[in-house]
Write a protein that binds this DNA or RNA. Structure first.
Length: 289
DNA sequence: ACTTTGACCTGTGCGC
DNA sequence: TGCGCACAGGTCAAAG
């Protein structure tokens, strides 16, 4: 489900609610998500205060007062929502089929529940000790919207990659946070074919080409635009307030197979093509520069 | 060493 | 209405 703009939208929506709240109780309604839950997860969280909700790539990072971090990846269909806590019984609502984790929190304005729901269970959580480094974060590439992300950095990251640029950009060790939608959209904006061999976008002497400059700018712009729209909702994505994103209405290629290219002066038709098991959407007419 | 495929899960929509 | 299949925002281990 969620790529960087969706995860960041969830983070921004939840942070004001969970910041400073104490985890009174954790209910794990099954022993595993994608992986087995961390040992003693509930005991290690109960009584802890959340000081900040952060994000790295597609991971949510609940930073606890002890210095420990609860890391959460949403997989394809993971989501968080807030529920009021009723006076008696806990949790104070009827959990739905795919509500797997329930965090009973107490904040400055009272008690409420933070519910993690994930139908496909591709998501997972991990608990990182104070001062520890998570194995999940260790090999991630740069944040696409960070200062460290530029054409030169991208050039060195893909300089030895012989695979198609579409697939390479989905590799989170190259750049962290892009998924299928935003890679397709960024390549369209940069007028680069998803089939282009990654290393061929880098000039022989290693300096970034015009195409990599365009690609870097396109990645930043599409993510920024998506963030401003609260992310994209295809099926079930909702922000912390239960609202859909609306960037899906601004897609230029994703899901637009058979429709006409939106670029001025281009009479092309969007095609869908499988690459490494994922659908790529692109315009063969204008994505060739 | 690098790239592609299949697997992990459940749900939905479409053609027959 | 029901059935089977394709496909879905992601990643990982296995196979090529």
């Amino acid at each position: 489900m969620p790529e960087l703009p969706e995860v960041e939208t969830i983070r921004a929506g939840l942070d004001p609610h969970v910041r400073g709240a104490v985890i009174e109780k954790v209910v794990a309604r099954r022993p595993d998500l994608r992986f087995a839950l961390p040992k003693e997860l509930t005991a290690r969280l109960e009584g802890q205060r959340i000081v900040h909700l952060g994000r790295r790539a597609k991971y949510l990072l609940f930073e606890l007062q002890t210095g420990a971090t609860l890391l959460s990846h949403l997989g394809m269909t993971g989501n968080y929502r807030l529920e009021p806590r009723l006076a008696h019984g806990s949790p104070g609502f009827a959990p739905k089929k795919h509500d797997h984790l329930i965090f009973e929190l107490r904040g400055a304005h009272g008690a409420f529940d933070l519910v993690y729901s994930d139908p496909r269970r591709f998501g997972y959580v991990d608990l990182v000790d104070p001062g520890g480094q998570s194995v999940h974060l260790a090999h991630l590439g740069p944040e696409p919207l960070g200062n460290e992300m530029n054409a030169l950095a991208l050039a060195s990251a893909i300089a030895k990659r012989r695979g198609p640029i579409k697939t390479v950009l989905l590799d989170q060790t190259v750049i962290a946070g892009l998924g299928n939608i935003y890679v397709c959209e960024a390549l369209w904006r940069a007028q680069i074919s998803p089939l282009a061999i990654a290393l061929e976008l880098v000039r022989a002497n290693g300096a970034p080409t015009v195409r990599l400059e365009r690609l870097t700018a396109a990645i930043k712009h599409v993510l920024t635009d998506a963030l401003a729209a609260g992310g994209s909702t295809l099926r079930d994505y909702r922000n912390a307030e239960g609202e859909t994103g609306y960037f899906q209405h601004s897609f230029d290629v994703y899901g637009r197979e058979g429709q006409s290219c939106r670029r001025q002066e281009c009479a092309g038709t969007i095609v869908r093509q499988m690459q490494a098991g994922r659908s790529s959407f692109w315009c063969p007419r204008c994505q060739n520069h």
